[in-house]
Design a protein around this nucleic acid. Structure first.
Lengths: 197, 197
DNA sequence: ACGAGACGTTAACGACCACTAACAAAGATC
DNA sequence: GATCTTTGTTAGTGGTCGTTAACGTCTCGT
């Protein structure tokens, strides 16, 4: 056994399966009995671990938003004022998330409105702060670009990087390394075009 | 029974409002009573115009997929063998769809799995054919690029162009013309980077 | 040993919801 | 002017689903 994350606790199992099912069939399209069956217990047994179905979704979305933002802040520190290096790191970090946590990437922008007001506000705030990290980095590299355009471009690049879940599983896809390299090139190519020339 | 074209018929009203509501709160998150109320009639009154809730979603998704593919084919003819011109047209056409039919763009990749098998197969086929138009165009411009990479890149550009629905409505956004111009630049920038150099 | 708490189970309740039944009014058709 | 079609209404039905209640069992700490 290596570092952290000893045995996956039952809570973690539930969260993982819930994420998969929510991403597959939508929050309203999945019943608690299904989630329970996916971890080998029966529907109401879930309530020993979560206050309700909403609580599972909330924990998933707050979790992914928080980790994304935390990762972004780490990159800001590590890049230490070099905007080009910072952008490289942000892109690579986001690609890692997109390739590793496909289910959460889907839920992240699809089921946000199913949250209680307070949770939704928190997730939105984390998202906004994460976007702000990107916008600042891009604006340093493109000082003459207008702020609304930069913001739009950043959202567009998120759409680009988050596109991997939409790929059909049957098709022959590039391997993980090739996929990461391709997405990196595409993202850089797109962002290089925020300013007309 | 023929095609209806002139004045917005009640069917069209229903489809438009259903699209808006489905995009806002998800297929399972909207009740038939809500859809009815949005067009001024009450829930069960909808069944004079559609066989059921599923039928509305099916018609929306088949419709958008068909129009996208038909538009793509039109561009192939109009470009007449010039791959650069073809790609320009495909990008511009897709941007028009993304800006005009935000709701349908959302539904298009979000609620596909709620369809009956036969409808889902049809939509998937139309989507696949549309993608193929793009892949062919890009491969002509980048003959040395591997096919899986091109396919992935095309999907990624779709994600980029379809990102406009995710923009918060409160923020100051570029106007429609500026938005279209920006998306066009970003898409071209990304696709120019499918080949390493 | 022996409670105590953690972790499950099945049964039932209450709300919601897509859909159907039965009925009514306005216009077109003959 | 009688009737059929179109388009709507309200009331009800069957099923699904999230959640709670009541009840077992297994594992420990003391």
């Amino acid at each position: 056994m290596t570092t952290s994350a000893a045995a996956p606790t039952r809570r973690d199992q539930i969260l993982k399966e819930a994420a998969r099912l929510f991403a597959e069939r939508g929050f309203h399209g999945v019943g608690v009995d299904e989630i329970g069956a996916a971890v080998g217990i029966s529907g109401p047994g879930l309530y020993r671990h979560f206050a309700g179905k909403d609580a599972m979704l909330a924990e998933l979305l707050v979790g992914i938003s928080g980790r994304l933002y935390a990762g972004g802040r780490k990159h800001v520190e590590a890049a230490a004022g070099d905007p080009a290096a910072l952008l490289d790191r942000l892109i690579d970090g986001h690609i890692e998330f997109a390739l590793d946590d496909r289910d959460l990437i889907i839920l992240h922008d699809r089921e946000l409105d199913r949250l209680r007001d307070s949770d939704r506000k928190l997730v939105r705030q984390l998202q906004r702060q994460y976007v702000e990290l990107w916008v600042d980095a891009v604006r340093q590299l493109h000082p003459q670009a207008l702020e609304p355009q930069v913001r739009t471009a950043v959202h567009a690049v998120f759409g680009l990087l988050n596109s991997t879940p939409h790929l059909s599983r049957r098709a022959t896809l590039p391997g993980r390394a090739a996929m990461a390299a391709l997405l990196r090139r595409l993202a850089h190519g797109a962002l290089a075009a925020v300013t007309p020339y």
